[in-house]
Computed example of a mutant assay.
Amino acid sequence: MSAAPPSANAVFVARGLTKVYHMGEVEVQALRGIDLTLERGELVVLLGPSGSGKSTLLNILGGLDVPSGGEVYYLDHKLTGASEADLTRFRREHVGFVFQFYNLIPSLTARENVAAVTEISPSPMRPEDALALVGLGNRLDHFPAQLSGGEQQRVAIARAIAKNPAVLLCDEPTGALDSATGVVVLEVLEKVNRELGTLTVLITHNAGIADMADRVIRLSDGHIVDIRSNAVKKAARELSW
Score class of each variant (00 low, 15 high):
Met1Tyr: 12
Ser2Phe: 09
Ala4Ser: 15
Ala8Met: 02
Asn9Met: 05
Val11His: 11
Phe12Lys: 09
Phe12Asp: 07
Arg15His: 14
Thr18Arg: 13
Thr18Glu: 15
Tyr21Leu: 07
Tyr21Cys: 04
Gly24Asn: 06
Gly24Leu: 06
Gly24Asp: 06
Val26Glu: 12
Val28Glu: 06
Val28Tyr: 11
Ala30Glu: 09
Arg32Thr: 04
Gly33Pro: 05
Ile34Arg: 11
Asp35Thr: 10
Leu36Arg: 11
Thr37His: 01
Arg40Tyr: 01
Leu43Glu: 03
Val44Asp: 10
Leu46Thr: 08
Gly48Leu: 10
Gly53Glu: 02
Ser55Asp: 12
Ser55Ala: 09
Ser55Gln: 07
Leu58Phe: 12
Leu58Asp: 14
Asn59His: 15
Asn59Ser: 14
Ile60Met: 15
Leu61Thr: 06
Leu64Asp: 10
Leu64Lys: 03
Asp65Glu: 15
Pro67Gly: 12
Gly70Pro: 11
Glu71Ala: 14
Tyr73Leu: 12
Tyr73Ala: 15
Tyr73Cys: 15
His77Phe: 12
His77Ile: 02
Thr80Phe: 12
Ala82His: 10
Ala82Ile: 10
Ser83Trp: 09
Ala85Ser: 15
Ala85Asp: 15
Ala85Thr: 13
Leu87Thr: 11
Arg89Thr: 14
Arg91Gln: 11
Arg92Phe: 12
Arg92Ile: 10
Glu93Ala: 10
Glu93Leu: 06
His94Trp: 04
Val95Cys: 09
Gly96Trp: 03
Gly96Gln: 00
Phe97Asp: 03
Ile105Phe: 13
Ile105Met: 14
Ser107His: 05
Ser107Lys: 07
Ala110Gly: 10
Arg111Val: 11
Arg111Tyr: 13
Glu112Gly: 02
Ala115Tyr: 02
Thr118Met: 09
Pro122Met: 02
Pro122Asp: 12
Met125His: 03
Met125Ile: 08
Pro127Met: 13
Ala130Gln: 09
Ala132Phe: 00
Leu133Cys: 04
Gly135Ser: 09
Gly135Lys: 02
His142Ile: 01
His142Asn: 06
Phe143Gly: 00
Ala145Phe: 01
Ser148Gln: 04
Gly149Leu: 01
Gly150Trp: 00
Glu151Cys: 03
Glu151Tyr: 02
Gln153Thr: 01
Gln153Tyr: 00
Arg154Gly: 05
Arg154Asp: 04
Ile157Met: 10
Ile161Val: 15
Lys163Asn: 11
Lys163Gln: 13
Pro165His: 06
Pro165Val: 05
Pro165Thr: 08
Thr174Ala: 01
Gly175Leu: 03
Ala176Cys: 01
Asp178Val: 01
Val185Glu: 03
Glu187Ala: 07
Val192Ala: 05
Arg194Gln: 14
Arg194Met: 09
Glu195Ile: 01
Glu195Met: 05
Gly197Glu: 09
Gly197Pro: 11
Leu199Cys: 08
Thr200Glu: 05
Thr200Pro: 09
Val201Lys: 07
Ile203Ala: 08
His205Gly: 10
Gly208Met: 05
Ile209Lys: 05
Ala210Tyr: 05
Met212Phe: 01
Asp214Val: 05
Asp214Thr: 03
Arg215Glu: 04
Arg215Tyr: 12
Arg215Gly: 04
Ser220Gly: 02
Ser220Gln: 14
Gly222Ile: 03
Ile224Gln: 07
Val225Ser: 04
Asp226Ala: 14
Asn230Leu: 03
Val232Gly: 00
Glu238Gly: 02
Trp241Thr: 06
